[in-house]
């Protein structure tokens, strides 16, 4: 940072590529939050994340870039797509993806952008670093994780396990509410419960996933 900061113009090749990728990422992100197609949103998200991975590469953070591709593009988006499918979202345009306070949201977002960009530009105008590959490699980062950041790493493993168990137990449909409905403070009348618990098992367990979305289909 003590080095003299080179001028912004002309940009270097790296910067040009970075900016292009950044424009792609931001544009795709904008489409994610504005598109009317639920599935398209997920696909635009892939593009945005991919472009960001490219940005990381340019910033010499190779390992992060690959993790980004693996986890975000690979796992997260797939997860989101599954979620979209499982909630029976329409494939086509859905008119009600946005709530009514879009204008307010836009104003807030623009204000946020204004403040953040101003501040960031002011704060980091003079920040410059030559990019040399190496420090972001897997070896460097791995050694850093296991030398300095063991504890958060371990905590993260507990977190992942908890997330795993939580997701499983929430999605499992084979555990029915037991005989003791009393746990529900709703105090639904018990007699019906007992009768109902067994027969509607199938209907409750799978149906919302399997049966065609009769109601929604009218929307197309």
């Amino acid at each position: 940072m003590t080095d003299p900061v080179p001028p912004f113009l002309p940009p270097t090749g790296q910067e040009i590529v970075f900016l292009l990728l950044g424009v792609v990422a931001a544009g795709a992100a904008l489409l994610v939050v504005t598109t009317k197609h639920l599935v398209h949103a997920a696909l635009w998200l892939v593009l945005s994340f991919g472009a960001l991975a490219g940005c990381y590469l340019i910033l010499t953070a190779e390992f992060v870039a690959w993790v980004q591709v693996l986890i975000y593009v690979g796992a997260v988006v797939v997860l989101l797509l599954f979620g979209i499918m499982l909630t029976r979202a329409p494939i086509g345009r859905s008119p009600d993806l946005d709530s009514r306070n879009r204008v307010v949201a836009a104003i807030v977002a623009l204000a946020t952008a204004g403040v953040l960009i101003t501040v960031v530009v002011e704060g980091f105008r003079g920040a410059y670093t030559p990019l040399e590959p190496g420090p972001g490699a897997a070896k460097e980062l791995g050694s850093s994780v296991f030398r300095t950041w063991v504890l958060p790493f371990e905590a993260l493993s507990v977190l992942l396990l908890a997330a795993l168990i939580g997701a499983i137990v929430l999605s499992r449909t084979d555990i029915r509410p037991g005989a003791g409905r009393g746990a529900d403070p709703g105090g639904a009348p018990p007699p019906e419960d007992g009768a109902q618990a067994v027969p509607d098992r199938d209907e409750k367990a799978s149906p919302s996933l399997a049966s065609p979305p009769t109601g929604r289909s009218g929307g197309k």
Binding site: P152, A155, V158, L159, G166, V169, L170, P177, A183, D184
Partner: peptide, 25 residues
């Protein structure tokens, strides 16, 4: 900060699941 973020997430995330654990409610 790293530990703080991870720990805070470790506090929060299981609670989401705990809240929803009465699954048919």
């Amino acid at each position: 900060l790293v530990m703080l973020v991870v720990a805070l997430e470790l506090v929060s995330l299981p609670v989401f699941a705990l809240t929803a654990l009465r699954r048919y409610d």
